[in-house]
Write a protein that binds this DNA or RNA. Structure first.
Lengths: 342, 342
DNA sequence: CTGTTAGCGCGTTCAC
DNA sequence: GTGAACGCGCTAACAG
């Protein structure tokens, strides 16, 4: 009973393969009785159509893809759920693909588009720069999220959409807030690598805020994280190193909530009270930031809305009721308990 | 320039399609020069082989699948990373599939097996019971993780492998630990639904520990969580409800670390000190449990080892150097700071 | 080393 | 309403 195919089903039912095909795919012009008989046999035999063969022929197939750069990143978790829900509501199929750190998400998209019959693609995270040529090769509309609008040259901005927040601006807002609380020696825990990531903009915002308020940048207070910016341990280790460096600071701004929570723990271990002795700020506004002890002062990205809007926009473009757009959501400064006036 | 295929590449290079195929697939018997010429043309044209067509023909294809039930569950994140690494080391391709809450993971596996050319399947999480018949339909070896060995009837235990911990036993261990600290009124925050989930066993362990030590079960201290057991908010809300119920308890045992961290926050908000006024215990031993304030007393599942062993075992079965096995890892009682002697 | 050819399993014309 | 035949793009035999 190896490899049961549509032909086998057809034989057993005494019908042609196309009839079976019609039964499976809910085509209208088929005798309900014939259909029932076929479906019964399918149930019995446990026949499962081969998707590869289907994709090869299919023309319609309402399917959209979500490519997630770093699926283990907790920041994307709620976004994925929102996208799944939205897509399902519209009766589209969803294929989710994990993009490895070393992969280029647009390359993966190109490949996936050949394999499946996609109608559109949503990117969650990923590199901030892409070749305009490659994006153009994609034949279906794409929406980048959590990435700004300057992914490729301005010339090609109408080839793709983006939904994001203005990272530099929001970061600026946070640092300015800390300054308004009286902090001058503000350390920042930031990304270490030099990839053109969105996260670099958070550092930019930091530098600009200091500059605006005439605070001299102390290079020793810029603490790069070794690799991943979404692990508690890196937040912890980097904070310890900062403490041990003996450098003076009254506030620590971490470019992710996860890092900030790791920092909280490091301060606790060092007997340094937050916010009495030092202020801590995060970024992202993940669920975790509202449940830490103390609650984090952070920039809340409207992740759910970004995901929702990205999906809506994609469908609008697919349905030709919208052109490509570049939507920027405002972030929200959440004043938690981890930062206070000096 | 629509839909460029292997035929097109062959034409442009003035060679046969099979030569192009050989070039793409790194076959040995091909002239390096020819290969280079072909690869150049492929680069130029941006040709990407159609995976569906490939899957249809391919016989070898070293590929294994990982099916994750609830990909947004932070517990699986490190496991996914371990599996990815192990699989890559062996030069196998990995396809990861997210199994929705309403989907049956074995059904999904069946489908995927038809579509791709799989050599084996690893399940991360999922239902604790499966039809033996369905599992038998899978033609490649499967390993279930974080799920005990009694998935189907004992008769078919040699049809699949499992790698897990003994949830009932570990849970028992934790509750006994709390009892040894002098606690008698131990509340438990547990799963609400009645699906035959692995998590039910944690409740079983709780009940057994109480029984052994002659502590009468107080139904009002068994607090079901509304749906998801991996959200901070549910931990928070359920704890609040418990506090407000006025029921007397000196310890709260949560069947996941995430719930426990939510509980910590709820106690903090209520002005109840942990562990001075109440002890809190978690389960899982996720990274988070080591960074919360206070650190959690919890049962550490060796998630990394489970993932590693599951992958190794799968490859051993594929390579015929092992039969199906049922491996049970010990959990580790981590004495954090959230529980103390009464 | 390379070209020719036969399917992989299915959806889609077309006839009937 | 239904069946036969064709081909999607590719890989794997088999010749040469």
């Amino acid at each position: 009973m190896s490899e049961i195919t549509i032909v086998e089903i057809a034989k057993r039912c005494g019908v042609g393969v196309s009839t079976v095909s019609r039964a499976i795919n809910n085509h209208s012009d088929i005798n309900p009785e014939t259909k029932k008989r076929i479906m019964d046999v399918i149930k019995e035999t446990g026949y499962i159509p081969n998707n590869s063969a289907r994709n090869l022929k299919r023309t319609d197939a309402k399917c959209i893809a979500v490519l997630v750069k770093g699926i283990t990143n907790s920041f994307f978790a709620p976004m994925i759920e929102v996208v799944e829900q939205e897509v399902e509501e519209r009766k589209y199929a969803l294929v989710m693909r994990h993009v490895e750190a070393y992969e280029d998400e647009v390359d993966v998209a190109l490949e996936l588009e050949k394999e499946k019959r996609l109608r559109g693609i949503i990117f969650l995270g990923g590199s901030a720069r892409h070749s305009a040529d490659k994006i153009k090769q994609l034949r279906v509309p794409v929406v980048f999220t959590t990435i700004g609008s300057d992914i490729a040259d301005d010339l090609s901005r109408n080839e793709y959409s983006t939904v994001s927040i203005d990272d530099a601006k929001e970061s600026f807002k946070m640092v300015e807030h800390l300054i308004s609380l009286g902090h001058k020696d503000i350390a920042i825990m930031t990304e270490g690598s030099d990839t053109p990531s969105i996260v670099r903009l958070r550092l930019t915002g930091y530098l600009e805020a200091l500059k605006k308020h005439g605070i001299k940048v102390n290079e020793k207070l810029i603490r790069p994280v070794d690799k991943k910016i979404y692990t508690l341990q890196n937040g912890y280790d980097t904070t310890r190193a900062l403490i041990e460096s003996g450098e003076k600071f009254t506030a620590l701004y971490c470019i992710s909530d996860v890092l900030a929570v790791g920092a909280l723990r490091a301060f606790a271990d060092a007997g340094i009270r937050v916010p009495e002795d030092v202020s801590v700020a995060g970024y992202d506004g993940q669920e975790l930031s509202r449940y830490s002890v103390p609650r984090l002062t952070t920039i809340k990205q409207p992740a759910d809305e970004i995901a929702k809007e990205a999906t809506k926009l994609l469908f609008n473009i697919i349905d030709k009721v919208s052109d490509h757009r570049h939507i920027v959501f405002p972030g929200e400064l959440i004043q938690g308990e981890s930062a206070k006036k000096i």
